[in-house]
């Protein structure tokens, strides 16, 4: 029996988009995709795909099946197929007009239903967070919903025999933990650079068609996806700059006055 790995991947606005090209729609409370700048797959999700493919490399291609799941309102096919060109086996797209502006909990419900519909899995690999809202919540909801252990912020993921071994990133170093399978792991950029697609992989990816499901195929209705954390307001914060020169009799005096000012402003 092959090891079944499911990777979640999200199509996001390219974080390299120049700030001047970004449009924030305050009324609809969302970011508008710049028309001439194609979206990308969330960077941490590419790390997750890489982690899954490294397990596939280690265990042999025939012994591991990597299925990538993505949910969204619409996809740019030659973007979202990138995991296939990197070496993933299958791509499942949950595509529905209702899948716009979901909060993390609702997104997790959709992915949860999709994972259950895919069926058997041993490991779920997610990026640690998405570069659009950076909430890092979906993987935790998923693990909870699936009732499986969750290990976060991995820099190394291995599956020797039938257990999960993860090297986690800590503020002051790393730690190694183990979990029983099935389990969920979130991957960080410390894992290393994701592989580039190969020309051969690209040719194979274009021959594969993703499995596409609507919300109804998962037994979900838009009503079930009402946000638990609605966005009240979306705006670009305004910042004001004031410049003040500190005068003093000498360097020490200026330093002292500067320290006082900073303390008054509660900066130090």
């Amino acid at each position: 029996m092959p090891l079944n790995i499911i990777v979640t991947a999200k199509q996001v606005i390219d974080p390299e988009t120049p700030a001047s090209a970004l449009r924030l729609n305050s009324q609809l409370k969302r970011m508008e995709t710049p028309p001439n700048i194609p979206p990308v797959i969330n960077g941490f999700d590419e790390n997750a795909i890489e982690a899954a493919l490294r397990i596939k490399d280690a265990k042999g291609a025939a012994n591991v099946k990597v299925t990538v799941i993505s949910a969204g309102k619409s996809f740019v096919l030659d973007v979202i197929k990138k995991p296939l060109s990197m070496g993933a086996d299958e791509l499942v797209l949950v595509q529905d007009d209702a899948l716009e502006g979901l909060d993390a909990f609702a997104t997790a419900q959709v992915l949860l239903a999709a994972i259950k519909k895919v069926g058997k899995f041993d490991l779920v690999v997610c990026g640690r967070q998405a570069s659009d809202y950076d909430q890092a919540q979906v993987p935790l909801f998923l693990a909870e919903g699936l009732g499986i252990p969750c290990v976060t912020i991995a820099k190394k993921v291995e599956v020797p025999e039938s257990k999960l071994v993860v090297e986690r990133v800590l503020p002051n170093g790393t730690e190694e933990v183990e979990a029983t399978l099935p389990a969920l792991v979130t991957v960080s950029n410390e894992l290393g650079q994701p592989r580039y697609p190969t020309l051969r992989g690209i040719m194979m990816a274009t021959r594969k068609q993703p499995t596409t499901w609507k919300l109804g195929d998962l037994g979900l209705s838009p009503a079930a996806l009402q946000p638990k954390v609605p966005i009240e307001q979306l705006f670009v914060p305004t910042s004001q700059r004031q410049c003040e020169f500190i005068n003093g009799e000498n360097e020490e005096d200026k330093g002292r006055k500067l320290a006082l000012k900073l303390r008054e402003a509660k900066i130090i």
Binding site: P38, L77, D78, K81, Y196, P197, L199, I202, A205, T206
Partner: peptide, 15 residues
């Protein structure tokens, strides 16, 4: 452009 060429183009751009 055909899909594979768009993907190859993006790969080279990223590289």
């Amino acid at each position: 452009l055909p899909e594979e060429l768009k993907m190859a183009q993006r790969t080279v751009r990223d590289f």
